[in-house]
Computed example of a mutant assay.
Amino acid sequence: MRGIGRLLALAAVLVLVVGLGMVLSSTQEGPVSPPVPAGSTAASAPVRSTAASAPAVDGSGLEAVPASSLPPEARETLALIARGGPYPYSRDGAVFSNFERLLPRKPSGYYKEFTVRTPGESDRGARRIVVGESGDKYYTPDHYDSFFHILEGK
């Protein structure tokens, strides 16, 4: 019986050490790639320049990336937005409600979302560009789990 108690105590300590290690490793900052959804390619995320933590110009705190570093399909969507369409998906231009609260808080209806085609997907896929009324633009490669602030003309 005494051996079982020691074994349980050892197991509890091991669980605590592993848990603490996981917490500490998830809080350390460093070069981190955004999550890539299953079935997609790494090309979904923008290619980062050497200034990987460039500040966002809109005060969002999101990483800012040049439009030129986005996947080609995202650049095509930006061009469609600049032309005012026509858009290939009926949901393009629909209100994005920012339920995730990852973008700056704005009044309802401020943001609109547009699909970024994902090669190999039979539906809309996970990639979107979200545009604010003031022209601020954001790219999400993972269906609103993360965003990048788009710097146009870069």
Results as ranks from 00 to 15, higher is better:
Phe114Gly: 13
Gln28Asp: 11
Arg2Ile: 03
Glu133Gln: 15
Leu10Lys: 02
Thr140Pro: 10
Gly19Pro: 03
Gly30Met: 07
Asp136Gln: 15
Lys154Trp: 04
Val18Gln: 01
Ser90Thr: 13
Val130Leu: 00
Ala12Met: 06
Ala45Asn: 11
Pro31Asp: 09
Gly125Leu: 05
Ser69Cys: 04
Ala43Phe: 06
Glu29Pro: 11
Val47Trp: 06
Pro31Tyr: 13
Glu76Phe: 07
Thr118Trp: 05
Ser60Gly: 01
Ile129Thr: 01
Ser44Thr: 11
Lys154Thr: 05
Ser60Lys: 00
Thr77Gly: 02
Pro35Leu: 12
Leu103Ser: 08
Ala9Pro: 00
Tyr111Asp: 12
Gly84Arg: 00
Thr41Asp: 12
Asp92Gly: 05
Thr118Ser: 06
Val130Ile: 14
Tyr144Val: 08
Glu113Leu: 14
Met1Arg: 00
Ala51Gln: 12
Glu113Thr: 12
Ser90Pro: 12
Gly30Arg: 05
Pro35Gln: 06
Arg91Ile: 14
Gly153Glu: 08
Ala52Gly: 14
Lys106Trp: 11
Tyr87His: 06
Leu78His: 02
Asp58Arg: 05
Asp136Pro: 10
Tyr89Pro: 06
Arg101Tyr: 09
Arg117Val: 15
Gly30Glu: 07
Pro46Val: 05
Gly153Ala: 08
Pro88Ser: 07
Ala52Val: 12
Pro119Phe: 08
Arg2Gly: 01
Pro46Ser: 02
Gly132Asp: 05
Lys154Glu: 12
Val47Leu: 09
Phe99Arg: 15
Pro46Ile: 01
Gly5Pro: 00
Val116Asn: 02
Leu80Cys: 00
Tyr144Ser: 09
Lys112Ile: 13
Ser44Ile: 13
Ala43Tyr: 08
Asp58Ile: 03
Ala52Ser: 14
Pro71Gln: 05
Gly84Asn: 02
Gly59Thr: 02
Leu7Val: 01
Arg2Tyr: 00
Met22Asn: 10
Thr140Cys: 10
Pro107Phe: 11
Pro34Ala: 11
Leu24Ala: 12
Arg105Tyr: 13
Pro119Cys: 08
Ser90His: 09
Leu151Gly: 08
Leu7Met: 04
Ala11Asp: 03
Ser134Glu: 13
Leu20His: 04
Leu8Thr: 04
Leu70Cys: 02
Arg128His: 04
Ser69Arg: 03
Arg101Cys: 06
Val32Asp: 13
Leu16Gln: 00
Val95His: 01
Arg6Ile: 04
Leu78Asp: 02
Ala42Tyr: 09
Ala64Cys: 03
Gly109Lys: 10
Tyr110Met: 13
Asp123Gly: 15
Ser40Gly: 04
Leu62Gly: 02
Ser53Ala: 15
Asp92Arg: 03
Met1Ile: 01
Lys112Ser: 15
Asp145Trp: 14
Pro86Met: 02
Tyr139Gln: 07
Tyr144Gly: 08
Lys137Gly: 10
Glu152Arg: 08
Gly39Ile: 02
Gly21Ser: 07
Ala51Pro: 07
Thr115Arg: 10
Glu152Cys: 09
Asp145Met: 15
Gly109Ser: 13
Glu121Tyr: 11
Val15Ala: 11
Arg2Ser: 03
Arg124Ile: 14
Pro34Ile: 07
Leu102Asn: 08
Val36Phe: 03
Glu73Trp: 01
Lys137Trp: 00
Ala11Val: 09
Val57Asn: 09
